[in-house]
Design a protein around this nucleic acid. Structure first.
Length: 341
DNA sequence: TTCCGTTTAGGCGGTTCGGC
DNA sequence: GCCGAACCGCCTAAACGGAA
């Protein structure tokens, strides 16, 4: 059947970033394009049609295979359209620096909304855009400090404290294990714990992990205070892309306390018993306590995870046996020889 | 008195293990 | 298989004690 004898194909046509749609019919791509340009008052040279759904360009071959009333976008020279993705992207860009009127409009929508899904989306949206993460002091953002002791005067200071507090509790737990260590090894165990304690104090209990003002590499967040979930202990990444900015508002601050610093190699089941056993069996060798320090207190073995990514099952991971004891230093005067692999 | 570091008590939710 | 106890993984708020 020739194109001339066929019934015209119908489309819903719109210009880029316009919500207004027009019905257009035609027997060829060129005819629809010509009519569309006339209707939308756009130049025909350089213009083209593509599917609203996914941005596929409508060509002559493809013309008759699309269903009637397919939605099209008319693009002029230099314009592009990737489908729904483009809509979501422009929607998000509006919220990057939201206008007060937009927040007001969203609040109004939420107050009238009854559908749970839309309520949830609007509430989440408002929660996110009403953050005041750039504020740092109590004077700049009093609601953020609600319920906190008066001694906390800055957000970074409080979050630093919160991290220090977590790390200190790890040290305490290691220390509490001393009575379980054999009498002969106990003294050495206490000495090792003391050494780790000194190093921790010098590092200010690694409180910088939660401090957005800490140097890059020493913190787990962006300079704005955004933390991303590092995923369960047995995965490289967080599939759900969890993220949070506890500096934003009080609710985020409270919610952040449910995030965990998860030991990849477990503290109580593995690291502490391994350390105790290594000290008991050391027979003259020197414990590499800095290796245990890195496992217990540093991001080398700690993952910041959303509560849903915190797996409480046994991790079944063990310490690296080659790093438990310090390597003996080679005697002076003899040149070290290297074994070929 | 205030500040600050540390300890204690308690909460939640998970797994493991042994008795029935 | 079910149930409860014990244990483990985290966390916070409140209390405590020493220093400024």
């Amino acid at each position: 059947m020739s194109a001339v004898s066929r019934r015209p194909k119908t489309f819903k046509l719109r210009a880029l970033h316009s919500q207004k749609k027009f019905g257009v019919a035609g027997r060829s791509c060129q005819e629809v394009l010509r009519k569309g340009c006339l209707l939308l008052q756009l130049p025909v040279p350089g213009s083209r049609l593509c599917l609203y759904e996914d941005g596929t360009e409508l060509t002559g071959d493809y013309f008759w295979s699309v269903p009637d009333n397919t939605e099209l976008v008319l693009l002029t020279k230099g314009q592009s359209w990737q489908g729904y993705v483009s809509d979501i992207s422009s929607f998000l860009s509006v919220f990057h620096k939201p206008h007060a009127g937009l927040i007001q409009a969203a609040r109004q929508l939420l107050s009238d909304e009854r559908a749970p899904l839309r309520q949830k989306l609007l509430a989440d949206l408002l929660h996110t855009v009403s953050e005041n993460s750039s504020a740092e002091t109590r004077a700049e953002d009093p609601p953020w400090f609600e319920g906190l002791e008066s001694r906390f005067r800055s957000k970074s200071g409080y979050l630093r404290y919160s991290c220090e507090s977590r790390i200190r509790s790890y040290l305490r737990e290691v220390s509490c294990h001393a009575p379980a260590v054999g009498a002969e090894a106990r003294e050495e165990y206490v000495r090792v714990v003391d050494a780790m304690g000194q190093k921790l104090r010098a590092a200010q209990y690694n409180g910088g992990y939660f401090d957005r003002g800490a140097r890059a590499g020493g913190r787990l967040c962006t300079p704005e205070g955004w933390f991303s979930c590092q995923g369960p202990f047995d995965m490289d990444d967080c599939v759900s892309k969890h993220s949070i900015n506890p500096y934003g508002n009080r609710e985020s601050r409270v919610l952040f306390s449910t995030w965990n610093l998860d030991h990849v190699i477990e503290k109580k089941r593995t690291i502490v018993p391994t350390l105790a056993e290594a000290i008991e069996d050391r027979s003259g060798r020197e414990i590499d306590w800095e290796y245990f320090y890195s496992l217990l207190f540093t991001s080398e073995n700690l993952k910041l995870v959303h509560i849903a990514c915190h797996k409480k099952t046994t991790h079944r991971l063990s310490c690296d046996p080659s790093r438990i004891y310090k390597r003996p230093t080679k005697p002076r005067g003899k040149r070290a020889t290297r074994k070929r692999p």
